[in-house]
Amino acid sequence: MTEQDLLTRARAFVGGEATPPVTARDAVNQPMIRRWAEAMGDANPLWHDPQVRAAGGFAGAIAPPAMLDVWTMARYRPGGRTADEGMPVLQLFDAAGYTGVVATNIEQEYLRYLEEGDIVSMRATVADVSDEKRTGLGIGHFVTIDYEFTDQRGDAVGRMKFRVLKFKPPLTQAAPAADGEKPNKFPHPRPAITHDNAFFWEGLKQRKLLIQSFGGRLVHPPVPACPETGSFDWTTVEASGRGTIHSFVIMHQPQLPCFDYPLPVVLVELEEGVRIVANMLGATADEVAIGKPVTLDFVEVEPDYILPAFRLA
């Protein structure tokens, strides 16, 4: 599913029910109020002291207004919510890899304070699905849900706007392998793995050199969108491994601790038509020349960290 398909499908939910309506399993009650006030460290006598609330015009226990949506929350279940307790619009994002969820905004309006014995019902409507946003947590979409709360008489008691971010958890960056035998060894430089280039590094782990293909137009290094058309639709093709040296340099200085010098670094034109930078293996500096045919090989720098390299054909 492309990003645009996902957004179109998600926005089809806007204006519709986010979940089936829910009626609270328990009426507003003192034990839940007490537990909430304890968790918040809230000593307001209005929640605890019958005389204070009577002076305020309330007969029974009253609930802190911020508990508005607590009464209709889904029950605890071992293993988490069942699929039918979730929101289809959010599940759509889960299925597309936006598995992270974090609530970002609440706006609550209280029409009256809830009293002991009130039975709260809620209806939830999908209000908005944002464009893709880059956030500190990862890329994602904000989804806004509007809630209406009513009591046992059907009268409105409050409203809430609730916004969550559905995001793609950032990819795990490989940590340099611990090396107990050589504590002073300088770690090999690591690639920065992003959602755009993860396929490339995953392919290398399987000793495959993958090239991005936008409908047959091959691109390397990996990009988010086709440089020609802007399309986000791409697949990959595996390189044959045959190519020729298009250009090269022999590195002498500066010398990084984990490479051998002089180090031939080649720009190889693959027979598929794209060019890639890699190190040469098994060739001295004076054997490397523009136009020479090369074949692909792989270097396992550390377990699960594999780099492409070339040998003279």
């Binding site: 909430w36 460290g41 307001n44 305020g56 802190p64 911020a66 974090v102 706006e107």
Partner: peptide, 25 residues
């Protein structure tokens, strides 16, 4: 949301009536 409400009523007292809370995380 609960801590924000409590923070305000700790100061405003038992006669305060909260009409609206909007928070952004």
């Amino acid at each position: 949301n609960g801590f924000v409400q409590r923070f305000v009523t700790d100061w405003a007292g038992a006669n305060a009536r909260i009409r609206r809370i909007a928070i952004r995380l």
